[in-house]
Design a protein around this nucleic acid. Sequence first.
DNA 1: CCAAAAACAGGTCAATCGTCCTGTTAATAA
DNA 2: TTATTAACAGGACGATTGACCTGTTTTTGG
Lengths: 205, 205
Amino acid sequence: MAETREPVRKRTNDPEGMRQRILDVAELAFQERGYHATSLGDLMQAAGVTGGALHHHFATKKALGMAVIAERVAASVEETWLRRIEEAPSARAGVAQVFAAVADELERQGFVRGCPLNNLAHELSLADDDFRMVLAGIFEAWRAAIADRMRLDQEAGTEEGVDPDRFAALTVATYSGAMSMAKTEQDAAMLKVCAEALAAGQGKR
Amino acid sequence: MAETREPVRKRTNDPEGMRQRILDVAELAFQERGYHATSLGDLMQAAGVTGGALHHHFATKKALGMAVIAERVAASVEETWLRRIEEAPSARAGVAQVFAAVADELERQGFVRGCPLNNLAHELSLADDDFRMVLAGIFEAWRAAIADRMRLDQEAGTEEGVDPDRFAALTVATYSGAMSMAKTEQDAAMLKVCAEALAAGQGKR
DNA sequence: CCAAAAACAGGTCAATCGTCCTGTTAATAA
DNA sequence: TTATTAACAGGACGATTGACCTGTTTTTGG
């Protein structure tokens, strides 16, 4: 019998899969612990990757942070907000639905991680101008999607006398602030209260 | 002529002044660079104090962080919000005035540092439960002050049909979120837009 | 099949971090 | 004055950080 001739695969190259696994753990860690509080060693251990692999895909920690923002945070806002707003029967209904859906999800999880965009925006927008500009772009796209949806409603004859941009700004601000309180208080209640107040206008019943 | 007999003061003890100087630089650094991104060495250099003095007044970095939150962040919210809301002719007028005053100040400075409370809340409330609870208490006091002022208005006969707690939550959320965008965009515009939207209700003109 | 490049392993490195320690000086109470 | 304590100086310490480097293996283009 001849000696085993199998090429004995010690490793399987999967660059895209490896990259995504790194982004997975980086996204979670940056959100839960913060960018500066997370070390590359933490990520290597959590993802089960070596320093060589990490450095191969992301030369610096900043490059990894930029990738998390551009690919994951932006996608998260798109999934949670942009898509649902587009598909909603109206801008106002879409906004109410997102607030309710997020609040429900948080209560099921029993843990409030906060808004992915705001979490990183607060920590990084003053630390680095590259971070700041990418984050600002996501905020802008978020508002634009809501304002565009409101303009559609207006073309259909409803919502007269409403400034779409103003409505969008108030919506994003209210959500961001409500989530900030929900995170600090570890309770989704503020999200619900603010959704009601926003729908009623000026806190009236 | 006898040799100089002055006690040659090499140092002047001023424990409270030293403590406040440390808090001064820590407050600024934690706001502009963040808690984790600021090293104690940074603070020692900026304040011109030695490690011994720093450690004497604040045994750990966390103790310093807690002091900044309890003494400086809380005071900042009190000064910017609680006092002005109490003195305002009405809750609604007070809210509008604070928004305008802050926006004006930011434009004069040409730089948006963000909301002191939200800045630290985002970075620290998931990192440490002690931090989180103190921060949550400040949010609560902030909302309570606005709600209390609104109740006063109602006792005077105005603002019927408004839920004070709901109004307070919406106000704090809107301000927090608007400031978050203003910080990320380094532009006070969102603060003004959101103030208008809040005053108009639901973004209507 | 073979060369070249990409993908990954595993470790080194200087720099920096927060903590804590031992002295020295200033304030205070007796 | 003297004794005691608080206030500060200045540095040591191990642990950790992000960057990077040299090999080895896998994949790919010709």
